[in-house]
Design a protein around this nucleic acid. Structure first.
Length: 332
DNA sequence: CGTCCACGGGAATTGATGGACT
DNA sequence: AGTCCATCAATTCCCGTGGACG
């Protein structure tokens, strides 16, 4: 993790400003970071908190990924664990968790809510607001998603003083990011500036993807016994990196999601009803359509494994990704 | 219109688990 | 130790809404 974050000074300053009141012992301003993936939102949020903790020792903080912990209870549970570390019996009631956090928190504290737009129960934002001293940094892809979901009662009580927009990284910035990584991880001359630039260009502003590409390229080169990364590996490396990420995602799917995925692998472009019918045959313990719609389908979409095309009254589901993807028959 | 499709709110059910009560 | 109660997450059931289409 590089210390000065490439090209994010302005963003860093805004978040730092939002947190500034903590240095005087007050509650910080809530702030909200949004922008596409791989542009450094999470990195900036964490760095800002780290910097704050350097100034004001022991400011309690917690990091919660709302994609993973999406219920009110799960979020609060996670916070109570991280904020003070004290273990609480699992499955404590929400109100007890809140009391617990209130009791443990003396003075200001910060919570980073990553992927806030994935929260199912936005009420939790209100809960947090109700805890003296606590403030949050919300992270999401698009601003509208969060605001649309909050109901009025909540919106009117919670103020978000800072909204920080992250734009896509340009090629230069990505190249610079890669260059630092390469220098620190691979030595001073392992990679040509030119090669880095090509990796950057292929990863469309997504730093995470670019870094993965660099890693794969380095691995390929060292496997060939080379000290530097030759340009000819770039295309393959980036494609491989994408495939790797994808494969990893697929391996994490549960049986329902996998069944859906496999149905689509056989027959692409089904509408919801058809997809559900096929899924029911493919899975020996199928869940309801309602539930699929609420959970598994959005999940697959979020993982960027499927693509949904609006086709008049219905929706067509497609697999996303490199054509000619080999179906990997290895059972896990 | 009537129908098909999809969406999503909300109530109800089930099962696990921890705590209180006896 | 045994019983009962509360809470939570996961899941299902029921259903009104709304767009598109013939």
């Amino acid at each position: 993790m590089p210390d000065p974050i490439v090209d994010r000074n302005r963003h860093m300053n805004e978040v730092t400003d939002a947190l500034a009141p903590i240095q005087d012992g007050f509650r910080a301003e809530n702030c909200f970071l949004f922008g596409p993936s791989g542009v450094g939102k999470t990195t900036v949020a964490k760095a800002a908190v780290r910097e704050l903790r350097r100034e004001v020792l022991d400011v309690p903080y917690a990091y919660v990924n709302c994609w993973k912990y999406y219920t009110r209870n799960a979020v609060l549970d996670q916070i109570s664990h991280e904020l003070v570390g004290a273990a609480m019996p699992r499955s404590a009631s929400t109100s007890r968790l809140i009391d617990r956090i209130k009791a443990d928190l003396h003075g200001p504290g910060v919570v980073i809510l990553d992927e806030v737009d994935q929260l199912r129960e936005t009420k939790v934002l209100y809960d947090l607001h109700d805890i003296p001293g606590l403030s949050w940094i919300g992270i999401a892809n698009r601003e509208v998603d969060l605001l649309a979901d909050l109901d009025d009662r909540i919106t009117s009580r919670i103020s978000v003083a800072y909204r920080v927009r992250f734009d896509t990284y340009g090629e230069d910035a990505i190249t610079e990011i890669l260059s630092r990584r390469a220098r620190e991880g691979l030595g001073p001359n392992a990679v040509d500036e030119d090669v880095l630039r090509r990796i950057a260009r292929l990863s469309e502003g997504d730093a995470r993807q670019a870094i993965a590409g660099l890693r794969v390229a380095a691995r390929m080169a060292s496997r060939e016994g080379l000290a530097a990364i030759p340009g000819r590996l770039v295309e393959d490396a980036v494609a491989d990196a994408e495939r790797e990420v994808r494969q990893k995602t697929i391996s994490k799917l549960n049986t329902h999601q996998r069944a859906l995925y496999e149905v689509l692998a056989e027959e692409d472009g089904l509408i919801q009803k058809e997809l559900y019918a096929r899924y029911q045959e493919a899975h020996d313990d199928p869940v309801t359509l309602r539930y699929l719609r609420e959970n598994h389908l959005p999940k697959l979409e979020h993982y960027n494994l499927i693509d949904i095309e609006q086709d008049r009254g219905s929706k067509r589901y497609h697999l996303v990704g490199p054509e000619g993807s080999q179906t990997n028959p290895s059972p896990c």
